[in-house]
Design a protein around this nucleic acid. Structure first.
Lengths: 351, 351
DNA sequence: TTGAAAGCGCTAACAC
DNA sequence: GTGTTAGCGCTTTCAA
């Protein structure tokens, strides 16, 4: 027996369902919400469910959000989706959030403070229930912002020293230690470091890791063998490695702050007629897609970016559900991937 | 003279502004909306603007959306953000939309029909004003769906033959023509094609382009020199190129359906002791990041992915503003990028 | 030109 | 257990 749709146009509303089921809209709301289903008679609930089904009822999240001040939406602030690392993090976040019915709202910020502000405000206006920020700069208004009242915040790929904020990061300290240890086992002693920008968290933490790793291997981290790049780019890697070579201090291996910097090292070495790994070994960081295809295939430290994102999502859900849980700071284990850019120390010492 | 905030908690609302300005909320709404500002006295409007400024008033898009059935939000359906091509498209979309105050809602679908459905429904429920779909499958429920009433749809990186839907795509026909022409100029005559999956739009259209290009060069497209992959992966490229070699028909060059397939060709050739480009030239498609770093650097056809996205955004805005504009189908020009994987035809003919 | 009032679809406090 | 009511913040008729 076909039942006519009650509201003649547009999708079915709660009231339509109520009319079909012969109950009050409030009852429908209760019956449909898992949280409050217990408050309603089982038979009634079933009737409501059937009516909803029949009408193809879909709750309107906008209306719900207006009432509840929640949106089941999480703002994701990321420097650049075109960077494969962040793309992986974002997929992890999306997949981690989906199960729980949350949707990410994504904005690229290019690490630009103004764009971050604008995106933050816009998302706040859209009632996001929380933010996951992959913003890399170490000093960040988001971290200090007292105006950040109520809204949850989870950091990914960076943390704060105070332990005041939930965060997931790769264990840079351990990752760099693996890289240095690998080089030492190959006989290298004079190991250089092309560091990432020290104003970015990962650049800074890997630099710290390098200093510690050298120390614990009983080696001196010669300041002349450390050069700081302005950014994580191939170009900067080339410039820094070039500077290293021009300083005239000998070294047989270099640990780069990330894979792009390592690629730049390739360029600088080639330009001066030096071979990798025969003359100089190079280690990258991140294990970007296709670095195994480079010439030579890059030895690097793999960071579980997807898992970083998925874990950040989990931490966010935890914050959202639990009331005032202590913020947890998680460290995800990296993995050394040995390929063709590292080899035993040559007799030939550069420069 | 400091003015106390009126609603003691939470952000300022329209009513707060109205109280401060000494007018009715309706007037504030009119004064603040550029569309209706003309209806209100200029002096009053200024007073309202000042009050809004003072209170730091931000309109609540949720409430507005509830009333207007619009959300200033565009659903973006994309197979996989971790694919750098789509990441670029999405950035183009985001940047193109931002100016106009629209926000993308992004979902990865992995080209999976069910996930697409779910994402589509969820976004519809969130009142998206339109969809930009980069979904690649040629037969697609979205395209036929009669239930797609009212909501705008723009296609990117694929089109439909009927011209019924606005779409932006790279000009695959021209791109493949450039590739074939390049090879012919290098003296190649027996040119093979490792085609992408024919159920995906780009795989199909590049295959068509190949047939036409060969014809217009006065060459025969030998069916034995065309092999169809199951997907755009390195692995499939390897399998297909291997099959090509096993068939025993001679060829000196291969046009791959995309860069990953081309990479697979590298593998298959190397595995059989053949050199690229000395024995076989290879051309890719897309110009992914870092293909210039491969061994050998890949000759390929560059597709302007970012512009594809930006143009799709523009098309969407056009649809949103104009009432029932005829759907435009745009073609963006590709560009041949010659690198090291193509060379003059060798005397040595394989297999 | 502005005010009044209704209502988008939903939830939650309270009443029965 | 269920109905009633009020209202989230905004836009948009309709009247004045």
């Amino acid at each position: 027996m076909a039942m006519r749709k009650l509201s003649l146009e547009g999708p079915a509303t709660l009231r339509d369902v109520a009319r079909v089921a012969g109950v009050h809209p409030g009852t429908v709301s209760r019956a449909l919400n898992p949280q409050t289903r217990g408050l309603v008679n089982e038979r009634t609930a079933r009737r409501v469910l059937e009516a909803a089904q029949e009408l193809g009822y879909r709750p309107n999240p906008i209306a719900r959000g207006l009432r509840t001040n929640r949106s089941n939406t999480i703002g994701v602030l990321v420097p650049d989706l075109m960077n494969p690392l962040f793309a992986a993090v974002v997929r992890g976040i999306e997949d981690g959030l989906r199960e729980a019915g949350y949707t990410p709202l994504i904005a690229n910020t290019d690490n630009d403070a103004e764009r971050e502000q604008v995106a933050y405000e816009a998302m706040n206006a859209r009632q996001v229930d929380g933010f996951i920020a992959a913003t890399a700069r170490r000093d960040h208004w988001l971290l200090a912002d007292d105006a950040r009242t109520g809204v949850k915040l989870v950091l990914v790929n960076r943390r704060v020293d105070s332990d005041a904020l939930p965060a997931v990061t790769g264990d840079d300290h351990e990752g760099i230690r693996l890289a240095v240890e690998h080089l030492v086992r190959l006989g290298h002693r004079r190991i250089a470091h092309v560091a990432g920008s020290q104003s970015l968290y990962t650049g800074w933490s890997r630099h710290q890791g390098f200093l510690d790793a050298m120390r614990s291997e009983g080696l001196e981290a010669d300041p002349d063998l450390i050069v700081y790049s302005q950014g994580f780019t191939v170009r900067e890697g080339g410039r820094c490695c070039g500077e290293l070579l021009e300083r005239g201090r000998e070294f047989t291996a270099v640990v780069a702050g990330n894979d792009l910097l390592a690629l730049g090292c390739y360029d600088a070495l080639e330009q001066r007629g030096l071979r990798c790994p025969e003359d100089v070994s190079v280690v990258g960081y991140n294990d970007m897609p296709f670095v195994d295809r480079f010439r030579p295939p890059l030895t690097t430290v793999r960071v579980p970016h997807y898992e970083l994102g998925a874990t950040a999502a989990a931490l966010m859900l935890e914050q959202l559900r639990g009331r005032d849980l202590p913020p947890r700071q998680l460290l995800l284990a990296p993995e050394l991937v040995v390929r063709g850019s590292t080899a035993s120390r040559s007799q030939h010492v550069v420069p």
